[in-house]
Amino acid sequence: MDGLLRQSDEDVRLWCPSMQEVTEVVHSLGTHDPALPPPGPFPHSGSMLKSAASPRWSEQQDTPREAALDISLSCICKFLTLCALAQPGTYTDRHLLGLMELLCRASLDVGLRLLPKTDLQQLLLLLLENIREWPGKLRHLCCTLSQASDHHHNLLALVQLFLDVTSRSRQLRSQLSLLIIARLLGRQEMLPLWQEKAQLSSLSQLLSLMRPSSLEQYLGSETLPLGWEKQPKASAQLDHKVCYLCHSLLTLAGVVVSCRDIAPDQRGELQLLCMQLDCHISTHIRESPQAMHWTKLKDLAAQTYIRWQELLAHCQPQAQHFSAWKAV
């Protein structure tokens, strides 16, 4: 910072930390999560990070754990933002991807779930813009982040770290959301998720699998023992899990659509999505005063349907535009 503020004609080379140094600083906060690699030879390798749930951090003695961790990560992000602004070419694309992965994983600490992440969000936007081989690195980044956790809540939180304010962040939000939906539903290798013109049709096929009854069968076979239907407590827990998962999936589906510029030739695909949403989700949600979580999900489905209908209203077929112009 002294180098930035000093007025001089001499060529001042500012110091920027390496990936190894950033990793060591993150470890100095007290993380014991195996998902974060131990300090070692540079460069950082994404293969060292295995899928895990939220990191766990050691307790701080002087201040509450959440406040200490929030302040520390905020300072790290502010300094890295300064480095990325002052010397945008310091980090290679591989280093930028590794840095985003490291910070995104650190942000999943349960102690940070209710705290704002403004500094991290601003840094992530800047790091995205500094990637040289874009969109060539988009696929690698999406694949890496989609494996950062096994829980849909964490994966949705990662998507929401990237603000919908730049072209690159919109691309990442849309592609990452679609990839996460396919992974959670076990269809990651069965659909053309990377073909831009086929993404809405892929989402339509995935939306048909988001029916609560289908999710109940899927989760029941994966997590519950045989005969769980006769256990009221297990059945109630599964009911909440199904609603929770469907809420995350529908939120991600909304991100996929809202981040795209719907062309007139894609209007039919968006109409089909609206039909799928109403047919497979809205009509299958059972509301009752004893199950307000389902009411919340139905509200989300209704809001999503309205947003998609608004997009349809602004995306008229080309023939209608031509006829209106000709009439004038």
Rank of each mutant, 00 (worst) to 15 (best):
W134H: 06
Q309R: 13
W57Q: 02
K78E: 12
K298F: 02
L114F: 10
C143P: 00
L193F: 04
E310K: 10
A313C: 09
G40Q: 12
E196K: 07
L207A: 01
L102F: 00
T295N: 03
A319V: 13
P17K: 15
S282I: 06
L179T: 08
G30M: 07
A302P: 00
K117H: 12
L176V: 06
W134L: 06
Y244T: 06
Q205L: 15
L191G: 07
D11A: 14
E229W: 11
D11C: 07
Q199H: 03
S149H: 11
Q195A: 12
R173A: 03
L249G: 00
Q121V: 04
K197F: 03
Y218K: 15
P43L: 15
A67T: 11
L311G: 03
L4Q: 11
L277D: 02
L155V: 09
G89I: 04
E229S: 07
Q271M: 06
S146N: 05
Q20K: 15
E133D: 14
T92K: 01
S28E: 06
N130W: 04
L277W: 06
S214P: 00
G136I: 05
C75H: 12
L311W: 03
S282H: 11
A182V: 02
E189T: 13
I76C: 03
Q199Y: 03
S323N: 03
L158E: 06
D11T: 10
